[in-house]
């Protein structure tokens, strides 16, 4: 989780990712951010997020994203 937050904060230093739960709905993460995220995550966690998992419910909050990573690692 720590590493994930670090990646996110590098993208948008102005956002508090611990509490924000509408990253997609509020248009904070755009498609560039999402791709950068997925690339960084694959680097960090050695997990490939498949394209069918790119959905708002998986990217709206840091928790959701972390849960997705855990699920994929499992």
């Amino acid at each position: 989780m720590e590493a994930l937050l670090e990646i996110l904060e590098e993208l948008h230093p102005e956002i508090d990712f611990l509490t924000h739960e509408k990253l997609i709905d509020d248009k904070i993460l755009d498609s560039f951010d999402i791709i950068t995220l997925i690339t960084e995550i694959s680097e960090e966690y050695d997990v490939r997020i498949p394209v069918d998992e790119i959905a708002p419910q998986n990217f709206n909050s840091a928790q959701a994203l972390y849960a997705l990573i855990q699920r994929l690692l499992d």
């Binding site: 791709i35 690339t39 680097e43 490939r48 997020i49 394209v51 790119i54």
Partner: peptide, 17 residues
Amino acid sequence: DYVFYPLSISRPMLKLA
């Protein structure tokens, strides 16, 4: 959804990265 995402997170792309 059908070009940008699948292309940019495809295996070759991640390898390139």
